[in-house]
Amino acid sequence: MRNRLTELLGIRYPIVQAPMSWIARSRLASAVSNAGGLGIIETSSGRLDEVREEVRKMKSLTDRPWGMNIAQAFVRDPDIVSFVVDQGVRFVTTSAGDPGKYCDALKSRGLTVFHVVPSLAAAEKAVAAGVDGLVVEGAEGGGFKSSREVFTMVLLPLVASRVNVPIIAAGGIADGRSMAAAFALGAEGVQMGTRMVAASESPVHQNWKNAIVNARETDTVFLNRHGTGPALRALRTGKTTQYEVEPPGNIMSEFDHAHKLYFGGDMEASIAVTGQVMGRIDSVKPVAEILQDTMIEFETVITGLAQRNGLGPDPLCASG
């Protein structure tokens, strides 16, 4: 498949893996890149020494394109731009902060920069700052969110109607059908988070993967809407059900125990950031199978839509 995004990033499939703290490391990211998508290495954990080691592993695991994320609210290292550039990466997403803070510095070093946005105003600000593209993230997605949530069905076509840069859609994407919907709304690529948490190569404990597979679409909570710090969408557990009504004074302190949940399997130890799309995920699969199935279903769906409406096959789709 060829479009502006695949040409810009040098990838086979316009599918990007979300930069999830502690999860978006070399094992998962290399699997995505090797399967034809774009793997991302996170920095939001703030563990830059660990991230440096993951980058070293990444280079030994794939020769395909990959990228990194700078989550500005969580990584306050004043040398983060130099850190990212020194890793030899060519693509960066910036998030959780001012799109202009690092854009010029990154682009002047030859990197392609996309910024993650939760609203039209944020998208227009990012484009004005000079970013090469956007990750437009609907509020149904897992992780940290704007407290004034807007969902993909509204946000994506709104932003697409006002900007002329490539858009990666995030929030609610797990397969070819949802990818086709995102393209119909104006995207040229998609980002998958929760679907990748439940991939075979995901490093999280099997308890979290099982929780995703067994969940309903109603089994997330939107936390900290009115508290200090970011809002977030997470898996419904005993802890998060309580926090939905009585949020802690500092929601971020809950992630001090993230490793006990993420890798130890204690689902009440911390907060499992997870999107509503888990209600559509019914199995744990290898990344290569996820991407292949997604592209096959994507082509089937858009071709079927065209044929049902008497438009013939879609000229943009080419298997291979």
Rank of each mutant, 00 (worst) to 15 (best):
T93D: 10
A24W: 09
H205M: 09
G143H: 09
P248H: 08
D98P: 10
G10V: 01
P230W: 15
K125P: 01
V221P: 01
I173Y: 00
L28C: 06
A211P: 09
R162P: 08
M196D: 01
A198S: 01
V197F: 08
V116I: 01
A318H: 07
A35W: 03
N214G: 06
T303Q: 15
T240P: 08
V117S: 06
V165I: 14
P118Y: 04
E244I: 04
M20W: 03
S319W: 05
A174W: 04
D98S: 11
L311Q: 07
T93L: 12
G138N: 02
L232H: 08
K59W: 07
H115K: 06
A187L: 04
L232F: 12
E54Q: 15
V135K: 04
L120K: 09
A184T: 09
T237A: 00
T152G: 00
R25C: 13
R225Q: 15
V81A: 13
I302S: 08
A139C: 10
S200Y: 02
F144A: 04
G227L: 07
V89H: 10
T240A: 05
L106W: 08
E299I: 09
A174Q: 12
I40L: 13
R109N: 13
D219H: 12
T43A: 06
G39D: 07
G100L: 10
G264V: 00
R233K: 00
H205G: 09
L291D: 06
V135N: 00
E50N: 00
A96Y: 10
G312M: 02
N34M: 07
K209C: 05
V131N: 05
M295N: 12
V197S: 03
V190T: 03
I290W: 01
F144E: 05
P14L: 03
G46H: 02
I290A: 07
S119K: 01
V89A: 15
R25F: 08
L111E: 14
G275T: 07
T228G: 07
A211D: 08
G138K: 11
D86Q: 12
S253V: 05
R4Q: 13
G227K: 03
P65S: 05
D104I: 11
E54F: 10
Q191H: 01
L291Q: 10
P315M: 05
